[in-house]
Simulated assay, not measured.
Amino acid sequence: MTLSVSTGRAVDLRVQPVDRVLDRVERSLGARLLPETVVRKRRSVGARTDRHTWVRVERRSLDKIPDQGWNGTESAARLQGIAQPEWLGCVVWQERDTDDPAMWRADETELLPGAPVGNAIVSEAPELPDTWWEALNASLDALAAQQTGRVATPDTVTITQDLVTGSIHDVFSDDVHTTVERWAPAHADLNWANMTAPTFSLFDWEDWGNAPLGLDSASLWASSLAVPALADRVRRERRSDFESRDGKVMTLFTCSKILGPHAHPEDPRLEPARSMAEQVMKELQVR
């Protein structure tokens, strides 16, 4: 594969040519990708196959691959008690002849049991039965109770105490106490585009690993803020996370991403995030 990218140029697979990449995936996996099903995102491309499975192809720069590797979907296959598509196999290769060294990975899984609930950030409330919320809670609780040596990489950045503290203090007061007390396994990219309905299933496990308790709940809340009733439902369903000290830190952490230097002035989440941040800061400010 010879996708040429100049140094410093961001790769966006929504616009970059990927035909030769997909040809290589087909040859390696021995399956045909159905062109009419191709879904292109910024750093991944997915498609159904002629054997009724799903293939997700991701490109990642070498400096975005941590020491633990980037086999999140593969390693998540051993997790118990979580509704997720079964992992079937993969192919990995390095992109050599380019100014921006990178790795490609294609993971094949069973098909999802339904369509994604919505976009990463929703503008209207999805219709979800109580059984869906019960399945969400069961999966997140089961995930947090397990053990792993992986460290979560939300937005492909390894999460650390320094990252949490720096992100919060860059946007809010330095007086806010940000020390994380409990770390637990998290999906680390929990939003409405990575879950299905009406049958609940959680997918795209590339970034999962240990993270501050409450990261997933806070991330889902943040992606719901444009719909206040939905954001409130998330807080009710995941109340134990939000009421914990670490959950409050993660709420502030997600607010810092919304309100930080790259905030869009027309983002409907700005005001509710600012209001919640002010409330949480009062609860965390005592060192």
Rank of each mutant, 00 (worst) to 15 (best):
G8S: 02
G8K: 08
L13S: 00
V15C: 11
Q16V: 04
R20M: 12
R27H: 07
E36L: 07
T37D: 10
V38F: 07
V38I: 15
V38K: 07
V39P: 07
V39K: 14
S44R: 10
H52I: 08
R56K: 15
V57E: 01
E58V: 14
I65V: 13
D67K: 12
E74R: 11
A77D: 15
Q84R: 14
E86H: 13
E86K: 13
W104H: 03
D107W: 00
T109M: 05
T109G: 02
A120H: 07
E127H: 15
E134P: 04
A145G: 12
Q146M: 08
Q147L: 12
V151Y: 11
V151P: 10
V151E: 12
T153A: 13
D155Q: 13
T158L: 12
I159M: 09
T179P: 06
A186P: 03
N191P: 03
T199K: 12
F200C: 05
L202P: 01
F203C: 02
F203L: 07
D204W: 01
D204M: 02
D204F: 00
W205Y: 01
P212A: 08
A218K: 00
A222V: 04
S224E: 01
S224A: 05
A226I: 03
V234I: 11
E237I: 12
F242T: 01
T251F: 06
R269G: 09
A273C: 05
R274P: 09
S275P: 03
A277C: 12
E283I: 06
